[in-house]
Each structure stands twice: as C-alpha cells, then as structure tokens.
Write a protein that binds this DNA or RNA. Structure first.
Lengths: 114, 114
DNA sequence: TACATACTGAGCCATATGGCTAAGTTACCG
DNA sequence: CGGTAACTTAGCCATATGGCTCAGTATGTA
C-alpha cells in the first residue's frame, strides 16, 4: 500500500485527533514544553509524545530540546496548506477546472508552500 | 476509547485519503454517479464504495439512488466547518479566545448547499 | 553524590482503515 | 424471460492508529 503519500495526507491526518487539535490550539498562544502541553490530558506521557511526534512529522509544529525540556512551537504555515486546498476546491466550483487533472491523478503535492 | 467523537474528527478524516479528496474535487464540478466517480481509479468497486459511504457518513456528500444508479452531490457546507476551525485558530493567534464569533470571510461562496 | 524531573524507547494490545474477492440484488434492455 | 449493468453485502487480510506499561536516559537540584 501507500507507495507515495501526499503532503496533504499527513497534514489532514494530524487534525483528525482531538488531542492534537487541542495542542495546536494551545500553541496558538505561544510555545510550550511537552509537560505543559500534556498537563490537561488524562493520558500517559508516552502516548502523548506520539501526538507531539506526529505533529512534528507532519509539519504542524517544530520542537527543540534544551536541557531536559522539549519546547514546541506552532508552524503556522501549515494552515496555508489547507487554505490552498480549500481555494482550489472553490476554483473548481467556480468553473475554473484547470487543475482538475491533478485531483484525478491522485498526486496533488504541489501545495507544498514554502 | 472514543466515547464521543467530534464532528471535526470525521470531517478531517475524510480528507486524509487521496481518493476521497479526488472525489470531492470531481463533485465540485457537478453531481455524478458512483460508476462515473470510480472510473479514474484502479480500484475494485466495493473498495471505492467504502469511500463514498465514508464521505456520506462524514457529511461531505449526499447520495440518492434512482433506479440502479446512485448519484452523489457535494455538500459544500462541509468546507465551512473547516473554515470555521481555521478562523478559530487565527483568533487564538490574535489573542481573541472568543470562539466562533468571527465567522470567516468566505461564507458568501457557499450558496448552493442548504 | 543522591534524588527528582522530564522525557524517551521498547513493546504490547484493541480497533480502525483501506484494500481484495466472491457472491448477491435490483434495475433496464431486447 | 434472459442477460447485462450498477451497485451491494459479506467476508478476509495487512497495516496504521492510539492507547497502555515498564524500564531507561539525561538533566537539574540539594
């Protein structure tokens, strides 16, 4: 399966989980450590860390370890990836089907903004 | 696990699959039958139908069977769900944690569905 | 040095996802 | 009535996801 996975797959997949969406929400008001982010959740640390790693892997956050504390920062440009996709859909509705082939051929990766 | 699943979970989950995104793209230019939608994909019908059912379950499309043909229609309002979420995130960045109040700009595009 | 803090790694488990085939069912056509 | 077309149902299968525990490792603190 999955020989090639579009950027969009992971970008959306990251948003399917309420824990991860909540983390993004929290990070919207500024960077935080893993411990701070995990505090509100009734979840074991290793489980929570999987979400952090997933958000990092899919480009939604950046993390950096200083001492024993890992600090997470929101990558706002990921929101742009979604907005681009939304815009393309609306273009189709508007009759500008110039990009339709990309959707049909499954590989829509050109939204890799920046 | 998952005793209560947010609407957003499914809304985003539907978009994680390239086949489903392609179907939404195609439906953006008008309703189509399952057969028409399935044609571009090298996939068995039952597999494809799962995607259709999933899109229906998560509110992205509506379907109706007439004779032996099932016709699918895009539910454009689902895009609004995502835009609302995006708007909420941006509000957080801006320091306004009052949710939902700031309904996003693009609402004037979604006339055709309900 | 001893101990606590903050992750991290390994591995287990149940369920979900996304594909398949084989065998229906239900129209429509001649 | 017989056959074909357009789904549909019912399984099976491999991998992914999202949780857990238990046992590290690396830092900061007294």
């Amino acid at each position: 399966m999955a020989q090639y996975v579009s950027r969009l797959d992971g970008t959306f997949q990251a948003l399917t989980d309420p824990t991860r969406r909540a983390v993004l929400g929290r990070l919207g008001s500024g960077p935080a450590s893993v411990g701070e982010l995990a505090a509100p959740f009734d979840m074991a640390l290793p489980s929570f860390m999987k979400h952090i790693r997933y958000l990092e892997k899919t480009g939604w956050i950046r993390t950096r370890k200083t001492g024993r504390v890992r600090t997470c920062t929101l990558e706002k440009k990921s929101f742009g990836v979604i907005e681009t996709w939304l815009g393309e859909q609306r273009n189709i509705w508007a009759g500008r089907t110039d990009r339709l082939e990309h959707f049909v051929t499954v590989t829509n990766d050109k939204e890799t903004s920046e």
